[in-house]
Each structure stands twice: as structure tokens, then as C-alpha cells.
Amino acid sequence: MTLLRIEDLRVYFNARGRIVKANDGVDLEIEETEILGLIGETGCGKSILGRAIMGLLSENVEIGGRIIYKGENLLELCEARMRQIRGKEIGMMLQNPSTSLNPVLTVGEQIAEVYRYHEGVGKEEAKKKAADMLKLVGMDPKRMDEYPHQFSGGMKQRVMIAIGLALNPRILIADEPTTGLDSSMKKQILDLMSGLIKSRDVSMLLITHDLEVAKGVCNRIAVMYAGELLEIAPAEKLLSEPKHPYTQDLLDSLPRMGLNPIPGESPSLSSPPAGCRFHPRCRCRSDKCSEKHPDMIGIEAETYVRCFLYKNDKSKG
């Protein structure tokens, strides 16, 4: 069952007269109890997508399209209704745990306030629930009266997980949850997250630039490039037979595959190339690619790709 449906999402920033198209026609669905990976290079607009769902974009932004959750279009909701959804229905963890926790509040308080605010429980009750949450993410609840700077990066990320899951939301948006962690810690945090998410029937949107991170935990993966999606497929399929040349190159650039960088740079979001946005860097480009903008087409079951190399399979799309 589809839990959240994004339809033709367009997020345009006005940056000193230039229009930056951070998200340009994104269609994406988050299914119940799935882990959906959103992969892309830095600056492709993937974090913006996460913030757009939460309604946390700055005010100088133009948003178009629809984000449907439980029959409501989140983009049209008033701020008061949106506050009820944030945290309670859709939780979010930000990129950097060192800057995402408030330095002058104890970690216990940063979890407990969520219960007091959303569930209206008393101080003691909220504290008890916060302690349980810390236990759940593998931390000593005795440390709840300590401040963020007294914890290591991995510990802080555990606290972030505890905050994100405190109210048992239906969806957790995790934006680069492993940034700044060493590889053994990465694995621990990812295992902890995917374990908790599965046991609590939560869906997760895992935003990352790191295919290795997405590989182990995701059910499906969506690949984003210059503000639009280029490929969506079940994780195993996308990793074993990538369809889009960009996805193929991305896999080739992994250290394990020989660390082959993709030539060129990601295009600017204010003036993306005409036609297919990836064509200037593409190995397989033809004349058509610079002239026409390809549509997202379904080519196999649950597999969509935005590339002229593939033909629409009407029966599956």
C-alpha cells in the first residue's frame, strides 16, 4: 500500500534573480514498511525533497505539485496541522548529528519534550519514555542528563534516531544518517535503524550519496540527478542490472568496482542542460538526447527509467 505519494513536485528557489530548480517534476511513492533509498550526488536536490515533505523549506521558495499523505495534500495544509504531522506521522533525522542537537539542552530533554508536546504527558512520564527510547537505541539511560558535546558522533546519531522514532511515526526521513561516521560505526547505525524500522513497521526514506549505504538496507532505490529522478527500481535489481547510464556509472565509481569517476560535473540547477540533463556526461548519448527531454517510463515490473535507450513497456508501466 502506498503511504505517501509525491506527484510532479517542483521546488524552485529564487536566488538573486536566478531560478534554481532544486526539484523539477519529481514523482515518487513511499510504500508501507519499505526502506526507499534516494541516491544522488551532492547538490542534486535530494535533501530538498526530504524537507519539502516535512514542510520545512524557507519562505522564498515556490512549490508546485502534490504530496499526498493519508488523503491530504501536505503542501496545502496549514502550519498548525503540519505541526501535528511532523514528528508524530513523519519523523526526520538531519545530516550532521553534531549540529543537529541543541548544545544547551540535555539529550534526555530533547527527546522528552516531544512526548510532553505531542502527547501532553507529565514531566516524569515524558522522562521515563525518553529513557526507554535511549535504551532502545542502545544507550545508557543514566546519561540522559548529559549534554550533546559529551557524546561521540555515533552516540549523537543514536540520540537522533531516538528523537526521530520517539512518537513512532509512519515514515522516517533520514538525511545522510551516516555522514561523519567511520565505516564500522556506519554499519552499526544502519543496522540499528533498519532493525528498529522493521520491528516498528515504519517506512523510511533514506537520503544518501553513498550507494554502499543504500545497498544493505534499502528495498527500493530512486536515483536523482539535477533535480529529477532518472531511475527507480527494486534495490537488488538496480544494483545488479542498472538501466540508466548514470546509475551504471555511479556503480562503477564505487571503490569496490575500481573507483572510476564520472567525467564532468553535475550541472547547475539554475540552468540545466537542454534535453536529457545527464547527456553532456553520458557515454551513450545520441543527437536526440540534447534536443528532447526524456520521460520517465516503466520498462519492467517496478522499474522506471528516464532514458531514450529504453522503450516503454505498456503492459508493465
Partner: peptide
């Protein structure tokens, strides 16, 4: 700061 975004993502009101 990021921690303000975290606070917003918790669904807290502007006053808090």
C-alpha cells in the same frame, strides 16, 4: 542552525 530544523521537525510550535 540545524538544531532549529530538528526542533521544527519534531513538530514543536514557533513559541517553543
Amino acid at each position: 542552525q540545524d538544531y532549529i530544523v530538528t526542533a521544527k521537525a519534531k513538530g514543536l510550535d514557533e513559541r517553543t
